[in-house]
Structure formats: structure tokens, C-alpha cells
Design a binder for these strands. Structure first.
Length: 593
RNA sequence: UGCCUGGUAGUGUAAUGGUAGCACCGCAGAUUCUGACUCUGCUUGUCUAGGUUCGAAUCCUAGCCGGGCAGCCA
């Protein structure tokens, strides 16, 4: 791999959206680049959002701009304050140390400013400087007054009307993709009447579903979204931010473009399914004849990782049906799940930036994700010894009570790696898979008659197997080649196999959760019901013997358990004295295959 | 027989009229006190058919195939 193509974070990525932005920067079209990440607080952020976050924050970062975190909270029925909290936490986690300096937030209580020009009101809000103490995300709901004023403006100009059609009738009037719709009878309603009705909608005079505010565009348009789309609907529902102040709420299409405008967004980047909405985005903005430059929408293909699902609805189903333990179950592709599993934010970024940005949907091999994580962890994680499925090994020429101190390298990937002491004793545990009474061909771990190295310690030679009455192996006896001990010249002697171990008298216990892919199918819902593709072995819990230094492990710290994989403390269940580790990911294993 | 949009190795992504490259995966080998990492090599690709051109993944025409769009969701 040459430096030029290495998908590192110092290497600036390039794609069709960045090319557009670059062009705008070159021609100085905007004073500065402002993007936004606008999740609706109705679920947890996941791998798919990570791509959007890295794109939007990445573009801001590469161009000295800002990226607003905005709650797209225009549908109180589906939203919850708990989601707001988790979204903030997840975003901050993902961009920390990378783009946190371009994160655009507003001051607590900050609302748009109004400027009047020629009797026309213009609304704007900008991010607060980082020195402000109480920073919080932007909220579309902060602009409800402004949206309302813009809606009134639209009515006055004859671009919108109040419609009394029921939901069913509205659907009928809309027609279908290949058949034009027909005009609502209320389309010709006098402006004054619509104005009055809209005010009364706001005042709460009508019940849910009885009236809507619609844009007056073209019921025969081949684009469904231009067939008099609904701008406002009546919802007598209290809102997590605005309480019971409102009983009419703007639709996405109306609120989004205007939020972008009010915040001075220059590039509004969203996924492909909004492509057909773009004409409406532009229509609303240009119908309002706004004072400042209009933002523009650009679309890219969302991330679809193999062997996983990222649909909010299906994620909820997994949690509700208790197929996984919670929203932050380490098997889930939610950012909270990935974090709990031990996936480093830097690795996640490396992955989503590496897959690139295009305009066609594609299935991204989850192996690419796994590779990015391993690459990140390989350089970052300190090494430790741990035995997941222990079997006892007795070193017969070490006396009971005798201890031999060995030096173990903490991180062979770093040039001036430190070491730590580990203790070799007469009785140790080794991985049961590292011994085979009847070894397969090319097996170079411990076998009858064989020799193997105990990592960092010495070379041992097999002497005998001890079995119980049932014939199961209870312990293995070996002798230590004392000249091969760590630090002695004889330690340079070559043996084919090296295995990991811990002292049986000096180790500590830990629960270790071994995670695997949640689904057995590349595309879990390719064969109908995705729950049928659940991997029954996605979680295995083992009781491991681990080296004592691990009792000082810190939350959030990643370790490589040598020859096994990368592990981190479980943030929910691990306690001092009762450690629980999650396996983030295995090491690449070319032997198992 | 609607509209929008897109097709490059198995997968993901470059090449913007001038040698089809990179990464992942896979395979083979070297190295190794982690069967990891690292290193070397290998297999496999421009949807099809015409056209323009000295030259086409790129431009044009036609076709084929895929994705999206008919919430008072976002």
C-alpha cells in the first residue's frame, strides 16, 4: 500500500460532493462552508449515520467551515428527549479529537434573530463560539415561529392553501406515479380564508387530520412530491422541546430547507432517497424570495454494511423482541453498541471515510470494517495474556511455590515499547485449543512428544497427559527447558509454536463475552424475515483466566489478548472484582480456515 | 407504456478523451517468541450493441439491468 492511497485521516478524501464544495470554495461563493448533521431524535445513531457524520463534519473540517448538529424534531409523536441525549453523546464521541473544533452548537436559549428589510422578515441563527458555557444542538423546533411566519408568507403569495381533505381523500387526489393527481377543491380557496383557517389551525380549533396546509404546485407533476405536498398538519401532541405550545407541526420538506436557510447552511447533504424531494426543497425556498443565498441539497448513497441491519424499525424490533439485550448491545451496529464493544471512534472514521461517497447504493463488505478496526487497534492496544478456555499445565521441574519473573512486551508495534513483569509458576493455564492429543497435520502447538514455547517465558517439552476416570484430559505435564528461559541465550532457540498462558496461582478470573456477527446472511432480509437469519452463536460467554495486571484496566481501554483478539471492559456490567470483558474483534486467523 | 437516478474485478472505490489503478476478500510464499503484524507474488473488471474519434470506462444513440419515489414519517 502506498502512502498516496492509504485511507488515513491525514490524507484528505475526495469524492463528487467534496469536488463540488472545493469548486465553491475556489470561486469564493460562500464566506465559509456550513454543513449540518440533522438526525431526528426518534432512535439511536448507527453505522449508517457514522458515514453521514464523517462526511458532513469532514467537509467542514477540510474547508475551515462548521458543521451544525441539529435535531430534526418536527414530529413529536415519534420523538423523545432520551434520544436527543444519546445522539449528542454519540456524535461527540465519534468526532472527538478529529472534528470537535468544527462542531457548530448554539447557546442555550438562543433563538433566530429577525431582520426586517423592506417590510420583509429574515431569520437567521449562527453557531455560538466554543467559549460559551452552555452549548447545545440546534433544534428545528427552535424555528417553529419562523416556519409559521414563512408559511403565512407563502399563503399570502398564493403559494399555499389550507385544505380540508381527509387523509384518505388526500391520498386519492394525489394519484399514482404513472397517473396524474387531481386538484383539491380547496385549492382555489381565497387567500384571506386560508390565512384565517391557518391561524385557527394554530389556535387549536380543529382536530387532528381535519385540515392541512398544502403548497400549491402542480397536481399533474410527474414528481409526486410536487403534487401539492402537505406543509403543516394538525397534531395535538406535546413536544419534547416546545411542550404544548403548538398543535400544528411542519412536515420535513417544509422544515428542513428552511432550517438550512435560517442556519446559513451552504451544503445540505443527505441520502439518495431525498433526491426526488430536491425540487420541492428548491421550490419552497425560491417561492419565498429570500434575502440571503439559498442552500442547496446534494445526495449520496447511504452505507449498507453486509451481515448487519441499520433500519431503525428493525433495530427496534431486535431490542423489543429481546433478541439483543438493549440499544447498546455490543452486537448492534448502533454507535452506542459499537462503543461498548470496544470499537475505537478513530477506526470507525477510518472505515466510513475509506468506503467513499458515491451516488449508487452498494453493499459494503463488513470485512472492510473489521480490517479498519484491526488496523487501528493493532497499533493502539497494549498486549496482555489471557486464557479463554483454560486447561491446566503442570511444569514438573518447577517447584511448587517457586516463581520465575518474565518480561512481557506491552506493544511490539511501538518503537520504544515498555514491558511488564509476568510470573511463571509450576502450574499454569493454557488454551485448551493449544493442545491436541491427536494433532491434525501442520499443527504446531502442544502435542504429545512435542515442544512449544510459552510466550515470553520458556520452551517446554511434553511429558504426559493426566485423564480422569471418564477419559477426559484434566491436566498436562511438561518439563521446562531451563536454558530457554526468558533472558538466557538459550531462549533464542527456534521452536515452531508459541502459545499464551497465565499462572494458575497468580491469575485472576474474568467473564469474557465473545461476540460474532449477529446475522448469518450478507443481506439479512434478502430472504424475507431477517429474524430468521439471526446467528445463534453471536454471543458466547466464557470464564477466563487472565493475567493479574488486567485488574487495573480502565474503561474504554483496548487490549489485545495475544493470539486471540482485541478486548475491552464492558461499560455496563464490569465491576472491580468481577471483571467482564467484551471481545471487540478477533485477530485475523489464517489457521482456522 | 410515469418520474428521478445509477451501472468499473467477488466486494468497495479511482481514472473527468490518452498505459484501467488502489483497498478489502481469496490463494500461494517469505518472515515471525502472537498461525497476528509486516513483506512478496497471483487470480478476477469497464452491462450490451452501434456510433463519433488517431484514441472511449469517459462523448452520442438505442437497449438491458439495478435503486428510489404514491406518510398528515424523516
Amino acid at each position: 500500500m502506498t502512502e498516496d492511497h492509504k485511507p488515513t485521516e491525514t490524507q484528505e478524501p475526495s469524492d463528487f460532493i467534496r469536488d463540488i464544495v472545493k469548486g465553491h470554495v475556489a470561486e469564493k461563493r460562500y464566506p465559509s462552508i456550513v454543513t449540518r448533521f440533522p438526525p431526528e431524535p426518534n432512535g439511536f445513531l448507527h453505522l449508517g449515520h457514522a458515514k453521514s457524520i464523517c462526511l458532513n463534519f469532514g467537509i467542514a473540517r477540510e474547508n475551515g467551515g462548521t458543521c451544525h448538529l441539529r435535531m430534526d424534531d418536527t414530529n413529536p409523536a415519534k420523538e423523545d428527549i432520551a434520544y436527543v441525549e444519546s445522539i449528542i453523546k454519540d456524535v461527540k464521541w465519534l468526532i472527538e479529537g478529529w472534528a470537535d473544533n468544527v462542531l457548530g452548537l448554539k447557546a442555550s436559549g438562543q433563538k433566530p434573530e429577525t431582520k426586517s428589510v423592506n417590510g420583509k422578515s429574515d431569520f437567521s441563527i449562527t453557531s455560538a463560539p466554543a467559549s460559551v458555557v452552555n452549548l447545545q444542538p440546534f433544534y428545528a423546533s427552535d424555528y417553529f415561529d419562523q416556519f409559521y411566519a414563512y408559511a403565512v408568507e407563502l399563503i399570502k403569495q398564493g403559494h399555499a392553501y389550507v385544505c380540508d381533505l381527509s387523509p384518505d381523500e388526500t391520498e386519492l387526489h394525489r394519484g399514482s406515479p404513472d397517473k396524474p393527481g387531481k386538484d383539491s377543491p380547496f385549492r382555489v380557496r381565497p387567500i384571506a380564508e386560508s390565512l384565517d383557517l391557518f391561524a385557527r389551525m394554530k389556535a387549536g380549533e380543529f382536530t387532528d387530520g381535519t385540515r392541512t396546509l398544502k403548497a400549491k404546485i402542480d397536481m399533474a407533476s410527474p414528481n409526486i412530491w410536487l403534487r401539492d405536498p402537505i406543509l403543516y398538519r394538525i397534531r395535538h401532541t406535546s413536544h419534547h422541546q416546545t411542550g404544548s405550545n403548538w398543535c400544528i407541526y411542519p412536515m420535513y420538506d417544509f422544515a428542513h430547507c428552511l432550517s438550512d436557510y435560517i442556519e446559513g447552511i451552504t451544503h445540505s447533504i443527505c441520502t439518495l432517497e431525498f433526491e426526488v424531494h430536491r425540487p420541492l426543497y428548491d421550490w419552497i425556498l425560491s417561492s419565498l424570495s429570500l434575502l440571503r443565498p439559498q442552500p442547496h441539497q446534494y445526495e449520496f448513497a447511504k452505507l449498507i454494511p453486509s451481515y448487519t441491519i441499520v433500519s431503525k424499525r428493525k433495530l427496534i424490533q431486535l431490542v423489543n423482541e429481546k433478541i439483543v439485550s438493549s440499544w447498546d448491545d455490543p452486537r448492534l451496529p448502533t454507535l452506542s453498541g459499537l462503543r461498548r464493544r470496544g470499537i475505537p471512534a478513530s477506526g470507525l472514521r477510518r472505515f466510513v471515510i475509506g468506503v467513499g461517497v458515491t451516488k449508487y447504493d452498494s453493499l459494503t463488505d463488513i470485512a472492510v470494517f473489521e480490517h479498519a478496526i484491526r488496523e487501528e487497534l493493532n497499533t493502539a492496544a497494549e498486549r496482555r495474556l489471557a486464557v479463554l478456555k483454560p486447561i491446566k499445565l503442570v511444569l514438573t521441574n518447577i517447584a511448587a511455590g517457586e516463581t520465575i519473573i518474565c518480561k512481557a512486551t506491552n506493544n511490539p508495534q511501538s518503537e520504544n515499547s515498555t514491558t511488564r513483569d509476568i510470573t511463571l509458576t509450576r502450574e499454569v493455564y493454557i488454551e485448551s485449543e493449544d493442545f491436541a492429543e491427536v494433532p491434525p497435520p501442520k499443527y504446531f502447538r502442544l502435542k504429545p512428544g512435542g515442544e512449544v514455547r510459552l510466550k515470553y517465558a520458556c520452551i517446554i517439552k511434553f511429558s504426559e497427559i493426566i485423564k480422569d476416570a471418564a477419559g477426559a484430559v484434566t491436566e498436562i505435564h511438561c518439563t521446562v527447558d531451563m536454558d530457554s528461559r526468558d533472558g538466557l541465550p538459550g531462549s533464542n532457540r527456534k521452536v515452531k509454536g508459541t502459545i499464551h498462558w497465565v499462572s494458575a496461582t497468580n491469575c485472576i478470573d474474568a467473564e469474557v463475552r465473545l461476540y460474532d456477527r449477529l446475522f448469518t446472511l450478507e443481506e439479512p432480509d434478502s430472504q424475507g424475515d431477517f429474524t430468521k437469519a439471526i446467528n445463534p452463536h453471536s454471543l458466547e460467554v466464557v470464564h477466563a483466566k487472565i493475567e493479574p495486571s488486567l485488574k487495573d484496566a480502565a474503561l474504554g481501554q483496548s487490549f489485545q489478548f495475544e493470539r486471540l483478539g482485541y478486548f475491552t471492559l464492558d461499560s455496563a456490567d464490569s465491576k472491580p472484582g468481577k471483571l467482564v470483558f467484551n471481545r471487540t474483534i478477533t485477530l485475523r486467523d489464517t489457521w482456522a480456515k
